[in-house]
């Protein structure tokens, strides 16, 4: 549990609450980079509860967020120069949008926190500013009915909080809309790359070892020469699906992510072929093509979960066709490649 951002405390009639800094320390920045690479991401949490920013009093606004520290950090940074309260819900270390989808950032938890910390004694007003993505789990009218607090949905991005407040707590259409620009997609790629976990190392390792095999004869030299090429082929296809496709997302034809991944996968395979990678024989080349296309397509399809605009119905529709084809292509490719080890 992170605590370094606490810089003091504030005493109210409802109790003493920690006051937090609105600046990011080098420690915060370093941890942000680590979390973006999936390192310790599920344990990057803050204690749920009430925090102060600046010198808050009973008239200060209340901002609600999740106990994923990255969410909390973006909020406190956006509140620089403002006196406010932060109410942190227990989302088990998950960000606002994903937690709201699961219901952990929801009406029940919000009501529970308001009551547990006696928020009605901390502030004299009855308004809460909840991030717009929280609306997936929070029903404003139910919170009002159960606690008397009105939920005002803030902008999608924390950095729009100041203009939102300046406009009298009104968000413009742009602030309400979620975009998915290149910069945002790039930030999410490291997590995609790490998603493969140990498989992303074990599978290439298996290929490397098997590459030493040729017609019942095994040679380490062949494992190194052919195996290195196999490993490069596999990683190229993997990155084609989970890095290149997200980067080029709006510019690749087709709407289905599996098809976008197929396009980049075929492109990467062509480049590998003409630069002397892929295989040595026609059967081997065809086997590689099948496997690389399947890997790239599958990884790209998984990016639907990260993207900000894919619907459940749409993903189910594309998967119904794509998943069996990916499995068949990968299976045929694998069988073909293993058979070429023996002829």
């Amino acid at each position: 549990m992170e605590k370094g951002f606490i810089v003091g405390q504030t005493i109210t009639s409802s109790g003493t609450f920690p006051v937090v800094s609105t600046l990011w320390s080098n420690h915060d920045r370093w941890n942000t980079i680590k979390v973006r690479w999936s390192i310790g991401r599920m344990r990057y949490t803050v204690e749920p509860g009430i925090y102060g920013v600046g010198t808050p009093d009973e008239n200060s606004r209340v901002f609600v967020t999740a106990n994923f520290k990255l969410s909390f950090d973006h909020l406190r940074r956006a509140l620089n120069g403002i006196n406010a309260w932060i109410l942190v819900l227990n989302t088990r270390g998950i960000n606002v949008w994903c937690a709201a989808g699961k219901g952990t950032f929801g009406t029940k938890e919000l009501v529970k926190r308001i009551r547990a910390h006696k928020l009605e004694n901390v502030v004299s007003h009855r308004k809460l500013i909840v991030p717009q993505f929280g609306a997936v789990g929070v029903a404003a009218h139910e919170v009002k009915k159960l606690t008397g607090f009105s939920v005002i949905y803030g902008p999608v991005l924390a950095r729009d909080i100041k203009p939102f407040l300046d406009a009298g707590m009104k968000a413009t259409q742009e602030m309400r809309r979620v975009e998915f620009p290149l910069k945002e997609r790039m930030k999410l790629i490291p997590v995609e790359i790490m998603n493969g976990g140990y498989w992303a190392l074990l599978v290439p390792l298996a290929f490397f070892i098997i590459s030493g095999l040729q017609s019942m004869d095994y040679s380490i030299g062949r494992a190194v020469s052919k195996g290195s090429i196999a490993v490069i082929n596999l990683f190229a296809a993997y990155l084609s699906g989970c890095a290149l496709t997200p980067i080029l997302l709006p510019w690749i034809p087709f709407r289905r992510f599996a098809l976008k991944g197929l396009v980049t996968g075929l492109g990467i395979s062509a480049i590998l072929f003409f630069t002397g990678f892929l295989g040595c024989t026609v059967p081997e080349n065809i086997s590689w093509l099948l496997m690389l296309a399947a890997i790239s397509s599958f990884m790209a399809m998984n990016f639907t979960g990260t993207s900000t605009f894919t619907s459940l119905s749409g993903v189910q529709k594309e998967m119904k066709l794509a998943l069996p084809l990916q499995i068949i292509a990968a299976g045929l490719g694998l069988i073909g490649w293993i058979v070429t080890r023996f002829i």
Binding site: G305, T310, V315, M319
Partner: peptide, 21 residues
């Protein structure tokens, strides 16, 4: 979720291939 009149219906869920698998 936020329609007080229950006038909206949508089969909501994660539009995520990994989640569906």
């Amino acid at each position: 979720k936020n329609c007080p009149e229950e006038a909206i219906h949508v089969r909501s869920g994660v539009g995520c291939a990994a989640g569906i698998i």
